[in-house]
Nucleic acid binder design. Structure first.
Length: 474
RNA sequence: GCCCCGGUAGUGUAGACCGGCCCAGCAUCUAGGGUUUUCGACCCUAUGACCCGGGUUCGAAUCCCGGCCGGGGCACCA
């Protein structure tokens, strides 16, 4: 089987379907997977980006995809030329010098052949040479495959299979000026590369039919063609060209910016590749267009990683409150690393008491919902009442959690002023939440997937004087 | 305009090829409840679907026809 990305940028969650489906069947039937960079010259809208040659394999490795060989379409032009000449000699193809617009209107739509279709083999071969040697400028001539002008489907009438482009190619430069189109190059390569099964999006069914036409000409065995419908995410806009532009212009921080939805960005957010794989495989292989939510990926990720995610306190944009009347024997809070696994021990958070009071950071949301005298609990520490809002002052009430449970009072997360560490948390929309994490956060390894209690899961990407983290999901 | 494909709960999927075991299974979402020193995890409960109309048949989500709705193709893009 084969993976055939166009190298315009890294793979994103949407591309993951194609990749995982192929990888799944290859592994299940112990087949062979070839990574084929579909780096023909493209068009003004579809441009080959050199960095994609590295970003795509990176994404595949992240997903745990194993491929056996890498092939570049741009290395195989001579092969496509060889078959082009052969098709012309077999009178299966011809060089058409009609204007594309005129041809579409007068010939394709009406189903009437143009004069070029009846030219002799010799004349066609002469024209072919003129395409190669530069006599024809761009767009002046193209090779058409005789799929049939009388085909009831206008989409199938004598499609162009090779055309002239003088765009410089990032890998082979200006060595070639005639480039194949996708359906032709694959018609040849699916056979030449020995592909047995093709799994691709249903936007390519017409291309599949053209491939079959070519296989029939040569009497080649048909690879199995399987198509799946369009996949949309309700809560993610996937646009490689938009991302590419925003990355280039510096509006996005790079290809790991969450707004690109690249595999790199998901890795950075601590999404387990197995979560993506599970969701993609659950979709099956139907032709139906589907629209799913990233929530399913998040749900799977939670199942996979909740158990290994240490709990940490993080307060965004904290309001520093003066906490009074704390007894000196309560100078440290012992907070479980993970509530379901007591054996993982506790986080010892020093409160920082001076003269019976300390400074504690609370979230604006929590504080905003409290009235004077509200009884609440600083989670895993002690109960307090709100004395006054400005300046924010809270007073120790009791230690036992039952006191606050009785009245069903709020239990909130918090951080001490003492030794708390600045944290920059990149959210899914690309914005950054500034806040502080509890002192112990600086002892965690970079790459750790944590749960900021009552905030959500995140991955620590840089651990230093300031912690940089990426929000994953609730 | 021409051609192709699809339509099971909010979402996704199983069942459809080989009609009965399907008054339709599962997951997720949503709403309740339980548990928990997190708005996480875990447990329980609830709501909720075979696009419509004919036909074949003892019997149709499954087969046939028509309609409706949706998607895609008709590029010298991939």
């Amino acid at each position: 089987m084969r993976l055939a990305p166009f190298p315009s940028g890294p793979l994103h969650v949407g591309n993951a379907r194609m990749v995982i489906l192929n990888d799944y069947y290859v592994k299940r039937y112990k087949g062979e997977l070839i990574l084929v960079f579909d780096d023909t010259i493209g068009s003004s809208e579809k441009i080959v980006e050199t960095e994609a040659f590295d970003l795509i394999p990176d994404g595949l490795k992240y997903l745990g995809v194993e491929w056996h060989k890498t092939v570049y379409k741009s290395d195989r032009l001579d092969l496509f030329y060889k078959y082009a000449v052969d098709l012309i000699k077999r009178k299966e193809a011809y060089v058409c010098d009609c204007d594309a617009k005129v041809w579409r209107k007068e010939h394709k739509i009406k189903g009437i052949p143009c004069a070029c279709r009846f030219l002799s083999v010799e004349e066609n071969l002469a024209r072919w040479e003129k395409m190669l040697d530069g006599t024809y400028p761009e767009r002046a001539a193209a090779v058409r495959l005789k799929t049939g002008m009388d085909n009831p489907d206008p989409a199938m009438r004598d499609h162009v299979i090779l055309r002239i482009s003088e765009t410089e190619h990032p890998r082979v430069g200006t060595k070639y000026r005639v480039w194949p189109l996708l359906e032709y190059s694959w018609g040849i390569d699916d056979h030449e590369l020995g592909i047995s099964h093709i799994i691709r999006g249903k936007d390519l069914v017409k291309e599949g039919k053209i491939e079959q036409h070519i296989w029939n000409i040569y009497g080649w065995q048909h690879p199995e063609l399987l198509y799946y419908g369009r996949l949309k995410f309700q809560d993610a806009t996937l646009s490689k060209s938009k991302s590419s532009k925003e990355v280039r212009e510096g509006i996005y921080t790079g290809w790991e910016d969450p707004r690109t939805w690249s595999l790199q960005s998901l890795e950075r957010r601590g999404i387990d590749p197995r979560a993506i794989r599970k969701v993609m495989l659950d979709l099956g292989l139907s032709l139906v267009d589907i629209s799913i939510s990233m929530k399913s990926v998040y749900s799977e990720n939670r199942k996979l990683r909740d158990a290994e995610a240490p709990r940490v306190f993080f307060v965004e944009d904290p309001i520093w409150a003066k906490a009074e009347q704390i007894p000196s024997n309560l100078s440290v809070a012992d907070v479980p690393v993970h509530p379901d696994f007591p054996e993982q021990g506790v986080r010892r958070i020093a409160i920082g008491i001076t003269n019976g009071s300390a400074v504690i950071g609370l979230s604006q949301d929590d504080l905003g919902q409290m009235k004077k005298d509200t009884l609440f609990r600083l989670k895993d520490f002690a109960n307090f009442t709100l004395e006054k809002a400005k300046p924010p002052t809270i007073k120790m009430h009791s230690k036992d959690v039952e006191e606050v449970r009785k009245i069903n009072g709020p239990i909130i997360h918090w951080i001490p002023r003492l030794n708390s560490v600045p944290v920059e948390l990149t959210l899914i929309d690309g914005s950054i939440a500034h806040g502080f994490g509890e002192p112990g956060i600086k002892d965690l390894a970079s790459g750790t997937f944590v749960q900021f209690e009552r905030v959500g899961f995140a991955r620590l990407n840089e651990v230093g004087a300031t912690i940089r983290a990426a929000f994953a999901h609730k």
